[in-house]
Amino acid sequence: MAILDLLIQYWPLFLQGFETTLILAATGFLLGVAIGLPTSILETYASKIVRWVAIAYVELIRGTPMLVQLFIIYYALPQLGIRFDAMTAAILGLGINSGAYQAEYFRGAMQSVQSGQMDAAISIGMTRAQALLNVILAQSLRLVIPAWTNEAVYLVQYSSVVYLIAVVELTGIGAIIGSRTFQYVAVYSIIALIYLATTLFIVKSSHSIERRTSIPGLKSSQEQRV
């Protein structure tokens, strides 16, 4: 069978591509958290000007395609003297893009935490910062898990876009093996299956994480599409 032969012959390449995909998705996700969490806090609690900047960032990124953002980082910034290698540009692009979406998810989660929690925290003498850290965040991080799952899946899938700026991840490997064997359909079928399996794994894991961190007595949030 064509597919089996391909797998046996080329599995190191598939593995390599898969590894790169995972690295891209993971670093993009982490960068997204690092950008998104502070942004959501700024969007909600900061002074007017800072809030405006944060909101502008979120709206600009969410309103434009990721590929365009990637092109700007990789092809356009050199015009200003800022040069990144393809892999760095890819991670930056994924991270900055993810950050904007994650900011929205966090913001939604923080707003879902009842306002009474903040009132109670400051009533026992906490400052807003303390309240955020000790009360609001602990709850909103749990609420954001479903959205985070979607984001992780999204990143794994959209990491394929970096193929178009010549980063060799799983989809890129497909092009390479395809051009050698001309078995395009078989090759991409294998790749599709790998992506699918990864997606399913992420979703299953998140359900178990959600169960493990759930607050006793409270029903864990269902498929929250924020």
């Binding site: 899938q157 394929s160 989809t171 497909g174 395809g178 991409y188 992506y195």
Partner: peptide, 18 residues
Amino acid sequence: QVLRGIPLIVMFFLIYFG
């Protein structure tokens, strides 16, 4: 699940070559 689990570019290639 399948339609939502495959990256768009991979889908493009599958259709185009398939």
